[in-house]
């Protein structure tokens, strides 16, 4: 049944806010969760939330661009990337619990909280320039926070897969802000970014296998021989 236009827009914005909140929560989860398999699931969930937001905004802006972006996002990040990771790396990696994180969990979560608050303040001058745009006011701070949290994930992890997922979460977050900022961006751009991410996953999988063959570990963050100080 059709709803009055104003109400449906409100509904869409509220649902988008819900997706945004969940997106931020998942970003926090990626910083702290130890199980590798759990991290992969969280990343898939984050991608689904990104797609949800894109579909909601496509209904709000009445543009098919974002609809295509949402579908593309689901196809690559919720299906193709987990499948590629499964195929490329053996099962034993996924049941691991990572206990060699750089920061312990409470410290990491406190840093994450500080970064999220910083993102809120950093986004204010940008928001001032796009005055009174409700979707941007929601998606930009959350995207920026996700970007910083993804960076924290990548810096704080030593295992190859969670580290890669941190990088991919950064890209997800940039897109989360991007769908609200640039709903009319030509689709070629989105297709090329998706392709780019797939190449990244492929290259990282090849590299991880080479590291494992060579050093017997996938804790790539623990490789620290290249330094300037004298070698012992």
């Amino acid at each position: 049944m059709p709803m009055p236009p104003a109400t449906s827009a409100d509904w869409l914005l509220n649902l988008n806010a819900l997706a945004g909140g969940a997106f931020l929560l998942v970003s926090f989860g990626l910083v702290a969760l130890r199980q590798v398999q759990g991290c992969v699931r969280l990343y898939v969930l984050q991608s689904v939330l990104l797609a949800t937001s894109a579909l909601l905004l496509s209904a709000l802006f009445q543009t098919w661009h974002l609809y295509a972006v949402g579908i593309l996002d689901l196809a690559t990040k919720a299906v193709l990337i987990p499948w590629m990771l499964r195929r490329a790396l053996h099962d034993e990696i996924y049941v691991r619990r990572e206990i060699t994180q750089v920061f312990n969990i409470p410290t990491a979560l406190l840093m994450a909280l500080a970064l999220a608050i910083a993102a809120y303040f950093l986004s204010r001058p940008m928001l001032a320039a796009v005055a009174h745009d409700a979707p941007v006011a929601l998606n930009l701070p959350i995207g920026l926070a996700g970007l910083l949290l993804g960076g924290l994930t990548a810096v704080g992890r030593r295992e190859a897969v969670p580290l890669l997922l941190g990088l991919l979460a950064m890209e997800n977050s940039a897109f989360f802000a991007g769908i609200a900022l640039a709903p009319e961006l030509p689709l070629t751009a989105e297709v090329s970014v998706a392709f780019d991410v797939l190449v990244l996953v492929f290259v990282v999988a090849v590299l991880t296998r080479a590291v494992e063959r060579r050093t017997g570990t996938t804790a790539v963050g623990a490789l620290t021989t290249l330094r300037e100080d004298p070698r012992g």
Binding site: A154, M170, E171, A174, G178, L181
Partner: peptide, 11 residues
């Protein structure tokens, strides 16, 4: 990491 940050700039 650099690319993801720059992507937001492109948007």
């Amino acid at each position: 990491m650099g690319a993801a940050i720059a992507l937001l700039g492109v948007f």
